[in-house]
Nucleic acid binder design. Structure first.
Length: 372
DNA sequence: TTCACGCGTAGCATTACGTCA
DNA sequence: CTTGACGTAATGCTACGCGTG
């Protein structure tokens, strides 16, 4: 049993940067597919990583939408040019940003804008910044230095907390020892989420582009995606667990039901001497799928409405003293494979058909219907 | 062709910080 | 005001694929 988490088509190019902005009311989310097949999907360039990927299994019997998802994106308009339409929060929706660009005094503005922001001077040298020892924490808190005014589009541009945080960070910069944790703004997170829906992994180009768009360091983008994948996997595990739990319950119930039926059959067998005259029956199990085989000899001994059909199987030799019963399990329980033989010969399991054939060869019963 | 090496990125476990009830 | 739970950014480590000499 396998769970596949569909997070978009990994084969698609990284389109989010070319797309128009997500709508203001766009939903962030993903859907999970519970599949029953072998492991498909996986990273495009690396097959060994298979989780959190779109399921290619055609079976995909169950899909859970954990969050609503809307693929619709807003197109850039004349009123909202592409750069702004791509980032609708740049326009007017963020009151904090309004304040940052409006009534805020210069120093405060600079301070707020530069929190979370990687300075443009860093350029595309993501590798250097990626080093955990590169002092990125202190660097990113190096607000007010080289603010240049151009950046800050994706800076949080809000939250007095961050200003206070920045002040504390500036203190930390002096000793340079503490790790400073930054909270991404909602807008940044939303955009990253949108990107994650497109691709849950990043190539260097995409990473740099995203970092530039969001005014973050490439390392931050990278870390965000790593953590996001981890969260996705965790959710998947939870869903997996839930699904297995349901399966277990179903099977337990099925087992209980079968045990009950078996008891009934045994009671019936002892109460009716007719059964004693029947030839030995066998509980036949398919060696490949371990499914109990059906032999349709239409004894109709089962109680009415009984999903289990009993059949007195003809034995290959009269010397077989084993008392056995061929049971046909109906489609009940969680099974969806249509193993029930009630549909006639079309859906009869190959193993069952093989049984029929062997029996017909050994004990031909020309007028015997195939259905149970 | 094979091997060693470096680089980049993945997953994973863990830490540490910020937020909230 | 304190505290514990929780979410999450960040760190450190290992493994793998790939390109290169």
């Amino acid at each position: 049993m396998e769970l596949a988490l569909s997070l978009g088509d990994a084969s698609k190019p990284f389109k989010f940067l070319d797309k128009a902005a997500p709508t203001k009311d766009h939903h962030l989310g993903f859907c999970m597919g519970l599949g029953g097949g072998g492991g498909g999907g996986g990273r495009g360039d690396d097959g060994r990583r298979m989780n959190a990927s779109a399921s290619t299994d055609p079976q995909t019997p169950l899909q859970l939408d954990l969050l609503p998802f809307s693929p619709v994106h807003r197109r850039p308009t004349a009123a909202a040019p592409a750069s702004e339409a791509r980032f609708p929060w740049l326009i007017a929706t963020d009151p904090a940003r309004k304040s940052s660009s409006g009534a805020m005094d210069g120093s405060t503005q600079a301070r707020r804008l530069e929190v979370n922001r990687f300075s443009g001077e860093e350029g595309d040298d993501g590798a250097a910044l990626s080093s955990p020892n590169s002092g990125g924490s202190s660097l990113q808190m190096d607000f007010g230095v080289g603010s240049g005014g151009a950046g800050g589009a994706f800076g949080p541009g809000k939250r007095d907390l961050e200003a206070a945080e920045a002040e504390r960070a500036s203190d930390d910069d002096e000793n340079g020892s503490t790790r400073k944790k930054l909270r991404l703004s909602k807008d940044q997170s939303a955009f990253l989420e949108e990107s994650f829906k497109e691709h849950n992994t990043l190539n260097p180009k995409q990473k740099l582009a995203l970092a530039k768009q969001l005014n973050l360091r490439p390392r931050q983008v990278e870390v965000w995606f790593q953590n996001r994948r981890a969260r996705t996997k965790l959710k998947q595990t939870e869903v997996d667990c839930e699904y297995l739990k349901r399966c277990c319950e179903t099977l337990t119930e099925e087992n209980r039901r079968l045990q009950k039926e078996l008891q009934e059959l045994r009671a019936l067998k002892t109460s009716q001497p007719f059964y004693m005259q029947l030839p030995a029956t066998t509980l036949t199990m398919c060696p490949s799928c371990e499914r109990v085989a059906t032999t349709n000899t239409s004894t109709s001994a089962a109680p009415a409405g009984n999903p289990i059909t009993t059949a007195a199987a003809a034995t290959t030799s009269g010397t077989n003293n084993n008392s056995s019963t061929a049971l046909s399990l109906g489609g009940g329980g969680g099974g969806s494979n249509g193993s029930s033989s009630s549909n006639g010969s079309r859906n009869v399991h190959p193993f069952v058909q093989q049984l029929h054939m062997s029996k017909q060869q050994q004990q031909p019963q020309p007028n015997q219907p195939a259905a149970s």
